[in-house]
């Protein structure tokens, strides 16, 4: 489990993550939702040790993320940020292969190659596997990053807006893929999502953040309600039900 205890991050005088204590990373998919600036990315970055906490502690399976050896954590937890700018001209295949680095320290064995092939296949990247990243569309690049994270083959996956710039088909495919990874491989996935209906349809748990704090956390039916959405987004949104999942009607 990922356990946060009184975690705080400040910029200047504002606490953008404010005294947060929560357990994340249950088996299955946990989605984090919230308005822009609510602190979702900051929270995820701190768990992924990309950002230092100002106070409080974060542990992953009992390992403190600030003191545990990086190589050890890298085999247990993978994190993908919201926006990734790469200037390096790597091929998609090379990039995905680097996801295996924590396992073989750069040497690729047969099982590594298998993991790479599988990740490339899962994300539909076969046709562009030999292309350089700067020759891809935004969505293809995002899928390449996802494939790299997948190839890392960790129990915990932290993904910040993985559906960024994906078309509808690839959004659905990616969510199904994550669902399958959770169900069949026992992955524990935490993702930041803006589309609350994707969150409602695919998550086991939803965490709603507001102004640096956890506003509510619970099952989709407990979080995706008109009342909660009003508090989180400041909008009156009707919530219906479809196929057992709550569906927010927010386009109208």
């Amino acid at each position: 489990m990922i356990v946060l205890q009184s975690v705080t991050k400040r910029y200047a005088d504002t606490a953008v993550v404010d005294d947060v204590s929560i357990e994340l990373g249950h088996p299955g998919i946990t989605s984090v939702i919230g308005a822009n600036g609510a602190g979702k990315s900051t929270l995820l970055s701190m768990i992924g040790r990309l950002l230092l906490v100002d106070s409080g502690t974060i542990t992953v399976d009992g390992l403190d993320v600030t003191t545990t050896r990086g190589a050890l954590l890298a085999r247990r937890l993978a994190v993908l940020r919201q926006d990734n700018h790469l200037t390096a001209r790597l091929t998609v295949r090379d990039l995905v292969a680097f996801g295996r680095f924590p396992h073989g320290r750069g040497r690729l064995g047969p099982s590594d190659r298998e993991a790479i092939d599988r990740a490339i296949d899962y994300l539909d990247l076969d046709p562009v596997g030999g292309r350089f990243l700067d020759e891809l569309s935004g969505g293809q690049r995002q899928r390449a990053f996802l494939a790299m994270t997948l190839a890392q083959d960790t129990e915990y996956l932290l993904l910040d807006e993985p559906l960024n710039s994906l078309d509808l088909r690839h959004c659905v495919q990616t969510m199904r893929l994550l669902r399958r990874a959770a169900d069949e491989l026992g992955k524990r996935i935490v993702l930041v999502l803006h589309d609350i209906n994707f969150a409602a349809a695919y998550s086991d748990r939803i965490v709603a953040m507001r102004a640096g704090r956890i506003h509510v956390a619970g099952k989709p039916t407990e979080v995706i309600t008109t009342a909660v959405l009003r508090q989180v987004y400041g909008l009156d949104i009707a919530v219906d039900e479809f196929g057992g999942h709550p569906m927010a009607i927010y386009h109208l």
Binding site: G48, R49, L50, R69, A71, A74, A88, F98, F101, T149
Partner: peptide, 15 residues
């Protein structure tokens, strides 16, 4: 090469 991907990628890969 990993360092060339930047601090975040490097950290994520455990280096």
């Amino acid at each position: 090469t990993v360092a060339g991907l930047g601090r975040d990628f490097t950290t994520n890969l455990g280096m």
